[in-house]
Design a protein around this nucleic acid. Structure first.
Lengths: 271, 271
DNA sequence: ATTGTTATATTTGTCTGACAAATATACTTT
DNA sequence: AAAGTATATTTGTCAGACAAATATAACAAT
């Protein structure tokens, strides 16, 4: 497994070498200045070694050359193969960790594990942006009211029999755990995610999942009265019925009605 | 500006101190094992110093204690204020950079600048996820066909007069630069982004912007025939007219028709 | 036979000090 | 006035060291 990553011949350029092109270009500009040539060249940024390393490792992962679940060579080996210092490598690892691509553990059998990033990263990015812009929570609710009916509408055509039985199973679980608020909320979220997936569109699924997660995080704080939970189960049943009869517009309408009722809980307390 | 960041009293705990709780808990579990108590305690992760530093600085930014455009203290100062090594601090900085929150420059008047992250980060996350799952490009197109009409529909009600005149201005620019493919594509994207904003919903705007950017990146590669560009201008005019008459469903329909025609260019060549 | 103890090796986490590279500013030279 | 020079400041990179976490094995104890 020594050179299996194909990293051995990585040129390990120092900053001077990497910026050689820039310097040459500067010289040219200087000598040409006597003629005042008007030239428009956009500022080029010199990449850091840590970025290059991160890019290299990232491309290994996304191109499938190292599969999810595998453990990368130890930092020691990577350092010797890449020809960079450990500090630089570790900065690159923090970037990949931010991407949700890796995870590190100490000790033997530890090391750098390759992960399959899920919607969590997308959720984090979205959450950060919304926090920074002081986006009111009602916008998240509105977004869900707009997106989830879309999923249901398309899902009525596209849902497989298996997906429908899974939805039914989740409703059953909601019923069983209706007395445990925490467990119920979790099951309800799972049911919603089931709907998100029906459209068979990854982009839509990822988006709605992010929105759903953020709303759910707030929901567990607020709490959910028993009456609301009972209504929730009934609503879920109605939605499933509409999906089973392949009636997309009906399913969409029921989803929207359900969400609209659900959202009232927040809008009462919220500003 | 010495202690203005409120970082001075950061405890700078070493790993042993940070993990004290964990060790204590372990002991408890061990002594309880004689009774084989079934207990479910989720694995607690020990945060790294770099993560704590990143969290601290991030919260300073999102809470508005340091405003966008400001320059953080130099690494040297931060190191002394936070009580961590430079290596640790720099790992934290790479995380914040991944979040799109900061940017660094060398030299005097350089340093760590606070940025306002835009949709770019969201786009990066989405792009990474889609690449990893080998999501076909057609799903991106479909997602846009679903989301953009939504924006137009809501936008017909919510658009301000100023937004509508801006849209008109962008159509004018499209007309003027119809011979320059690159410039035209850029203007068209700007027009679309104008529509995304009409719904006055940040979540929807960020989502559609990400999808639009990813599609646009591909479009510039493929190229756009002149005939298509002329049709594009006409379509944009029709959409604006519908928006002006506050006819949401008409605007949505026109957007969808436009996109459907546009998407055919890809689906012919694509598998 | 299970449990506890100790030793050991491996891997990541952190710190320190040093030098190189980029760059704004002041100063000098032409 | 323009170009070159010196200098100071800040980030970028490297090397080496030690600490902490942890899997494994060997051994002792009950």
């Amino acid at each position: 497994m020594e050179n299996s990553l194909g990293l051995s011949y990585f040129p390990a350029p120092n900053r001077a070498e990497r910026k050689a092109d820039r310097k040459r270009e500067d010289k040219i500009e200087v000598s040409a200045k006597r003629e005042r040539v008007a030239m428009r060249l956009d500022t080029l940024k010199v990449p850091r070694a840590s970025e290059l390393v991160a890019d290299k490792l990232r491309s290994l992962i996304v191109n499938g050359e190292v599969h999810v679940g595998a453990t990368l060579p130890s930092e020691k080996e990577l350092v010797s193969q890449l020809g960079v210092s450990r500090a630089t490598l570790r900065e690159a690892l923090r970037i990949l960790e931010s991407d949700g691509l890796i995870q590190t553990k100490t000790g033997p059998k530890g090391g750098i594990q390759v992960l399959r990033p899920g919607a969590a990263n997308l959720t984090r990015s979205l959450s950060l942006l919304l926090q920074l812009e002081d986006t009111p929570f009602t916008m998240l609710l509105e977004a869900r009211r707009l997106l989830e009916p879309l999923c249901a509408n398309l899902g009525a055509e596209r849902a497989t029999a298996q997906e429908l039985t899974e939805l039914e199973h989740r409703i059953q679980l909601m019923r069983e755990q209706i007395d445990d608020t925490g467990a119920y909320v979790q099951q309800q979220l799972a049911f919603h995610k089931g709907i998100f997936a029906l459209a068979h569109n990854d982009v839509l699924r990822l988006y709605t999942t992010s929105v759903g997660d953020l709303i759910s995080a707030r929901t567990t704080q607020v709490g959910l009265p028993l009456a609301e939970r009972e209504i929730g189960v009934k609503a879920a049943e109605g939605i499933l019925t509409a999906l089973r009869s392949r009636n997309g517009s009906l399913a969409a309408r029921r989803v929207e009605l359900h969400l609209r009722a659900f959202d009232r809980m927040f809008t009462i307390n919220d500003k």
